[in-house]
């Protein structure tokens, strides 16, 4: 009888700890050995002694934290290759969330757990698509784990934006989005929809877009929004962090229409906060049907829920004969998520 993962994969105040392997996955405090699923700040923290992640995630960590804080020793590990640490087999599978994002697959004495980090199942040209891995315990997020969250096709949201640009050609559409993942995906979606004009960016988004390009993701012509004159920004689609779109920074734009790209925009009441005029339901996270489909697809008997709306998900999983468990991980889902 293989040992149940709860006997060797423990929730500690520092995060999820693989005891026989002696490493944490996405720890919230500096530790000796960390495996990192992806570069978002609630998963990748600075100051670990040894970090294992995909080479893209390591590059993102270095870009965001600086060389010296992104792990004293960094170990790049490609998707799909197995490594054994103190008898624990470890391999990574793409999570489809942002560039470099990985599910951490662990197997010990025949029992298998998959820690998926954050993930989505939609098409995204800026990162490798999610690959389901069969397992005994599947550790999932639950950011959008309510049946009201069914994300519409992203192309439909982009089409709505482009209709608005056609209606208000003398104004700037400024889309609020986070610097890692969402910004690059939006650019890629715009390119897929045929938008080939230069896309002016807020300074805070530039660094990671440049890094994505260095890592082989083509984003087309990008410019600094701060350099362009107001008249050049008429009719443009500009990207900026959410905090900037209705702030003083936006005054440089031509009669800006604040747009916000996030899964939360699905609920109108939420969308109306913060002066958004064009909400766009575009998310980096799995929606409700995708969460359920994924938990079923990996054939896990047990699903552990790290953060989000675990109550609804656990209820729905129980109806499908899957045991759910809320982990109440500290510090997750905060900061830049969505």
């Amino acid at each position: 009888m293989p040992p149940h993962p709860e006997t060797w994969l423990r929730v500690t105040p520092d995060g999820l700890f693989c005891e026989p392997g002696g490493f944490f996955v996405d720890p919230v405090r500096p530790v000796e050995r960390a495996v990192i699923t992806h570069g978002h700040s609630d998963h990748a923290r600075p100051g670990h002694a040894h970090v294992l992640a995909t080479k893209e995630t390591l590059a993102i960590m270095r870009a965001r934290m600086g060389e010296d804080r992104a792990g004293a020793t960094q170990q790049a590990h490609p998707y799909g290759e197995t490594l054994t640490i103190n008898g624990v087999k470890l391999w990574l599978r793409p999570a489809g969330h942002v560039l470099g994002s990985a599910q951490v697959c662990l197997e010990w004495q025949g029992a298998r757990a998959v820690i998926s980090g954050d993930y989505k199942r939609r098409h995204d040209a800026t990162c490798a698509p999610f690959e389901p891995e069969r397992c005994d315990v599947f550790v999932t997020e639950a950011t959008f784990a309510l049946p009201v969250f069914t994300h519409p096709p992203a192309g439909q949201e982009i089409a709505r934006l482009l209709r608005s640009v056609a209606l208000f050609p003398e104004r700037t559409h400024v889309i609020g989005c986070y610097a890692l993942g969402k910004a690059q995906r939006l650019i890629s979606l715009l390119r897929e929809a045929g938008w080939d004009q230069p896309i002016p960016l807020h300074g805070a988004l530039m660094k990671l877009c440049t890094l994505y390009e260095e890592l082989g993701v083509q984003l087309g012509p990008l410019t600094q929004a701060t350099v362009a004159g107001k008249e050049r920004l008429a009719g443009a689609i500009v990207l900026a962090p959410p905090s900037a779109i209705a702030d003083r920074w936006a005054r440089r734009l031509a009669e800006p229409i604040p747009c916000l790209a996030s899964g939360w925009m699905r609920v109108r009441q939420r969308a109306r906060q913060g002066g958004v005029e064009l909400p766009m339901v575009i998310s980096d996270h799995a929606d409700w049907p995708e969460l359920l489909a994924t938990c079923t697809e990996v054939e896990a008997q047990e699903v552990w829920v790290t953060h989000g709306r675990e109550e609804a998900l656990i209820h729905a999983l129980a109806q499908r004969g899957i045991r759910g468990r809320a982990l109440h991980l500290i510090g997750r889902g905060e900061g830049e998520e969505e």
């Binding site: 309510l146 609804a312 209820h315």
Partner: peptide, 13 residues
Amino acid sequence: TDPTLFALSYDYV
């Protein structure tokens, strides 16, 4: 819909 999921959703929305 399932009544529990409806109640959770209504409470949220």
